[in-house]
Amino acid sequence: MSEIIEDADSESKVRAVKTAYDLQRLKLEKLFKQPDKPVFIPDRPKERKMPKPPEFIRNTWGSSAGAGSGDFHVYRGVRRREYARQKFLDEKEAKTTKDDEYQRKLVENANAAEERTAKKRAKRLKKKKSKQKKKSQHVESESESEHSDDETEAACSDAKKICEETNEELQAQKDTHTNLEKTPVEIKPS
């Protein structure tokens, strides 16, 4: 991994590549030095295709008696191709299973996230409603206190009127009382 790369522009600079990060950084710098040059981006590797099914061999041979010396190599090639085909089918099935499992897991995670989101949303709305309810109760209590202030003022004004009337009555009684004192009272002997 430790390569030494020399730049053509600066011969005095010698950069030692110690990590993959340094190597990637140097490659990118090299690309950015010539921005008009097209960059080769490789295509994805193609998936392997499944081999053809084996030809049916009517004469089965192997190490059985009567087989010629060249037949074993033919048998071995057929066997190798069949094992490779079975391995390919097994790998394809495993890949399909993993893909299905991954998709199922994605759906489960999305559902779980949606449930959590819905639960938190409900909690937020409940909190918001309770906050609005408290605020409306507070406003009502303030308006009630304003009404009670109005009622208190009305009650005070009524009380003042009553007090004034009472004071007038008392004053009238006092006046009549003083008038009575001024007038001589005749005492009749009985």
Rank of each mutant, 00 (worst) to 15 (best):
F40Q: 08
E115K: 14
K135N: 14
R81A: 10
R121C: 01
A67P: 00
L28M: 05
E3T: 06
S2H: 07
H138E: 15
S12R: 09
S190M: 06
N59K: 14
S136R: 08
P35V: 06
H73I: 07
T178H: 07
H147K: 13
K18E: 03
C163F: 12
L89D: 01
E144D: 10
D22L: 01
K18S: 04
S145H: 11
K123N: 07
F40W: 13
A112K: 15
D71F: 01
K119P: 01
K37S: 09
L28W: 04
K188L: 11
I57Q: 15
N109T: 06
K133L: 15
F56A: 11
D9K: 09
P184C: 03
M50S: 09
E165T: 04
E93G: 00
A20G: 01
K174S: 12
R116C: 08
T178L: 10
S143A: 12
K37R: 14
P189A: 15
E153W: 02
S63H: 09
T166F: 09
K188S: 07
P42H: 03
E115Y: 03
D150T: 09
E165A: 10
V107P: 00
L89R: 04
R104Q: 10
F88A: 01
T117C: 07
E11D: 09
N111F: 06
A8F: 07
F56I: 06
S148D: 11
H177D: 04
A84Y: 00
I57Y: 04
I57V: 15
G66Y: 02
R25H: 04
R116A: 13
F40P: 00
A112N: 12
E165K: 12
G66M: 03
R124V: 06
F88I: 00
R48W: 11
E186R: 12
K161H: 11
K131G: 06
D9P: 00
K133S: 13
S145K: 14
G62W: 06
R124C: 08
P35W: 02
A154V: 04
P35F: 08
C163R: 10
E144L: 14
K128W: 09
T183W: 02
C156L: 12
K135S: 15
R85Y: 01
F88E: 01
I187P: 00
F56L: 09
K174L: 14
R48Q: 12
V39D: 05
K128P: 00
E3W: 07
F40C: 02
E186H: 10
V17G: 01
